[in-house]
Amino acid sequence: MVRDATSKDGPDIAARRRWMSLLARAPVERLEDAFHSLSETPAFVPLRKPEIGSVLVRARAGGAGQRFNLGEMTVTRCSVRLPSGLVGHAYVAGRRPRSAELAALFDALMQDPSHRDGLARTLIEPLATELDQARRLKVAKTAASKVTFFTMARGED
């Protein structure tokens, strides 16, 4: 699910957190399509080539108590720099080097006012809509198995 970015980080960071979370969930084909649709291929340089590693997943006892380590998950990260000096970062779940590279590139381009609106229209907002619809469909299908149990002898007064 895509959580709303909190406002405590200010509007710029909130917006960036939102597009980064969408890019992290984008299928690689979508990122490739968007990359090939760019009017000119940006001359980006890798600051950190795609790297596969792990992130330690934490949880809380009882859901809200003491923290503990549940296990790890595979993650791929990448950082790129545009000729303008803007730097894009990506951390994406799974072993997905190409996705991480493209997500980092789009993170950099989204910080560039000359690209932001176009990419928001062609990539970011359509992704948000698709992911939201997929989630709603799943929730709706799940809701079909909602059950009402009737107790034969009620235990309450």
């Binding site: 790297e51 590693g53 792990s54 992130v55 330690l56 934490r58 949880a59 790890e72 993650v75 990260r77």
Partner: peptide
Amino acid sequence: LPRLGVALP
């Protein structure tokens, strides 16, 4: 695997 970070709970 190199550990790239620790997640928030």
